[in-house]
């Protein structure tokens, strides 16, 4: 049951990711990115990371996408006009892509065998498990997160406010 679902949603993620890059209208790219993020959430779920899957949808597909759409609105981005591709991209683009792909395949094939699917059946990544780890073993990183968010809040206000 898990393997077919994985292939369906992994394929969906790849197709949607290609759509993000290939669309000329920025809003279509943003919508495709939502599909990528939701497919990734399903893959997290199949790996047993239930909490992460839900957070992926709430924070990434929900909140971060809002920012992307706001940037598109702020910049008043319309359809992209095709540009003269740079010499660098034309000559070295495909070779570099091939090298990167070979690297990824080498790492994935070398380090992960066919047992990955089995993890979802046994691994518990629910909110209880995450909470137990976060509030017992990793209290300091958790508290530091609040300071990180505090800095981000102040940064957002300083950047976006006309006069403080």
């Amino acid at each position: 049951m898990i393997a077919p679902l994985f292939y369906i949603f992994a394929g969906l993620a790849i197709v949607a990711a290609l759509s993000v890059v290939l669309q000329r209208t920025p809003v279509y790219s943003a919508l495709s990115l939502i599909l990528v993020l939701c497919s990734l959430a399903v893959i997290y779920l199949l790996l047993g990371a239930q909490f992460l899957a839900v957070i992926q949808v709430i924070v990434y597909a929900g909140a971060i996408m809002v920012l992307f759409v706001f940037v598109i609105m702020l910049l008043n981005a319309r359809q992209e006009s095709p540009t003269d591709h740079s010499l660098f991209a034309r000559r070295l683009g495909l070779p570099l892509l091939a090298v990167f792909l070979a690297e990824v395949i080498f790492v994935v094939v070398g380090h992960f065998s066919g047992t990955v699917f089995a993890a979802g059946a046994t691994f518990d990544g629910g909110p209880g498990a995450v909470g137990g780890l976060l509030f017992r073993n990793y209290v300091l990183p958790f508290e530091v997160t609040s300071i990180l968010i505090l800095v981000a809040v102040m940064g957002a206000v300083v950047l976006a406010k006309k006069q403080l």
């Binding site: 809002v66 909110p127 209880g128 976060l134």
Partner: peptide, 22 residues
């Protein structure tokens, strides 16, 4: 944009409350 940014940050804050509550 400012409201959207602040929404994300407090959204992340609330996300930490779920595992805590459990």
């Amino acid at each position: 944009y400012l409201v959207g940014m602040l929404f994300i940050l407090f959204d992340v804050e609330v996300a930490f409350l779920f595992p805590w509550a459990v």
